[in-house]
Structures are given as structure tokens and as C-alpha cells.
């Protein structure tokens, strides 16, 4: 009996703790103009002194933007300013990644079975990634000012641990998704301390996930 009760107890603790954690969690739910949840949006919490304290910080953090089936994986990578990003190549063909975004201009050849050196993203902002060989490849790196960011899940929810927010002088929240209209990306939301829902006013741009779903061979 004891052999069954131990794992049962563990499961109960896990279930209980996941619910109890929600009590100390802050969440923002993002809905589109038709009230459908928006997944993979980046929610960032900005606080008043983060500009000076972290502007020159090198976080020593490493993130990965992989190339899988001629796609960037993940499609959207969110990192803290100062993070190094490596671009491995899980395909057996060559890729040539580039960015013309003001936040970071770079290009890097990615060869089969060879690791290219990581690239440090020092400035906050958004980097649009492309591949000079496979024109359908599109990916984004969102570089946040601090570690206070989260990606929305399929229910449109981004979670933050309120304990990590308690000592911060929070100024505002921002939301970013590549298909949001530009004027909506500039909206500053007020942090109320209580979980909140934000609905976009304008319709999002058309979704071209069809570029990611299937694969046809190129010469």
C-alpha cells in the first residue's frame, strides 16, 4: 500500500502546488480582435531602473535558434539583452542566416556538421531572421531589457512569478507579436498587480504558417 501511496502523494503535491503557484503568479492573457487567444506573443515587464542597471550587462546566458526542416526553430526566440545565441544546423544542407534589422545586423553561414560561433545580442529590440538560400525561412529574436519576459501559450497566457516582481518599480508592460499591427506593438499597458486580459483592437496580419507546415524539395 505504501508503495502506491508515495507516488500518489507526489502527484497530489504537484497538482496542489501547480494550483497554489497560480495564486502567486501574475498572468496576462492576449486576445485578438475576434477574442481568440494569441499564442507565441512576447510579454515584457519594464521597470524604471532597468535601463541603467542592465544596459551593459553580459548575462553569460546562451540561447539556441536551430534550423530544422528548412525552418527556424523556434519561430520566435525571446532572450534577455546580452545573451549569446548559437545557430546550430540540424538539417543536412547549408543555410545562410542574415539580419538587416537595426537591432543587430549580421550574417552567418551554417554548414552541415559544423558549429558556428554564437552571436551576442547587446541591444534590446526585434531581429528579423532570413536565410539567403531558402527564402521562405523567417524567424524572430526578441531581445528584452531584462529577464522579465514570457511567451504566451496556446491559451494566450503569459505567466510571471509575482515574487520576482515584488521588489521592482514597474513602469509598464509591452506586448509584441510579428503579426500585430505596428501601432499596437507600441501600446504600453499598465501593470495592476492582478492578472489581466488585453484584447487587440485591430485584426492581426494574415497567418502564413503554411510555410512551416509542409516541405517541398528545392533544386
Amino acid at each position: 500500500m505504501l508503495s502506491f501511496s508515495a507516488p500518489l502523494f507526489f502527484i497530489l503535491v504537484m497538482v496542489f502546488s501547480s494550483h497554489s503557484a497560480s495564486a502567486s503568479e501574475y498572468s496576462l492573457t492576449l486576445l485578438d480582435s475576434e477574442s481568440k487567444p494569441v499564442a507565441n506573443a512576447i510579454v515584457e515587464i519594464h521597470y524604471r531602473d532597468n535601463g541603467s542597471s542592465t544596459s551593459t550587462a553580459n548575462t553569460n546566458k546562451l540561447a539556441v535558434m536551430d534550423q530544422v526542416d528548412e525552418q527556424f526553430y523556434p519561430h520566435i526566440l525571446a532572450i534577455e539583452k546580452g545573451t549569446s545565441v548559437s545557430f546550430p544546423n540540424s538539417d543536412n544542407i547549408k543555410h545562410h542566416v542574415y539580419s538587416f534589422s537595426e537591432t543587430k545586423v549580421f550574417e552567418q553561414g551554417l554548414y552541415k556538421g559544423r558549429q558556428a560561433p554564437p552571436i551576442v545580442f547587446e541591444k534590446s529590440g526585434v531581429v528579423d531572421l532570413g536565410c539567403n538560400i531558402h527564402d521562405w525561412m523567417l524567424g524572430y529574436i526578441y531581445i528584452a531589457d531584462s529577464a522579465l519576459f514570457a511567451k504566451t501559450n496556446k491559451d494566450g497566457k503569459a505567466f510571471f512569478n509575482q515574487n520576482s516582481l515584488s521588489d521592482k518599480d514597474i513602469s509598464h508592460l509591452s506586448i509584441w507579436h510579428p503579426r500585430m499591427r505596428e501601432d499596437e506593438q507600441r501600446i504600453k499597458l499598465t501593470y495592476s498587480g492582478k492578472s489581466q486580459v488585453h484584447q487587440l483592437t485591430n485584426a492581426m496580419q494574415e497567418d502564413f504558417d503554411g510555410y512551416e507546415a509542409l516541405s517541398i524539395e528545392e533544386y
Binding site: 527564402d135 521562405w136 523567417l138
Partner: peptide
């Protein structure tokens, strides 16, 4: 001369 559709939000290249 070529144009990929994805970066200009089009299904056609």
C-alpha cells in the same frame, strides 16, 4: 530575379 512571398506576407513566391 526572385521574390520570396513570406517576407511580404504573401503565399506566392
Amino acid at each position: 530575379v526572385f521574390q520570396g512571398g513570406r517576407k511580404r506576407a504573401s503565399a506566392w513566391s
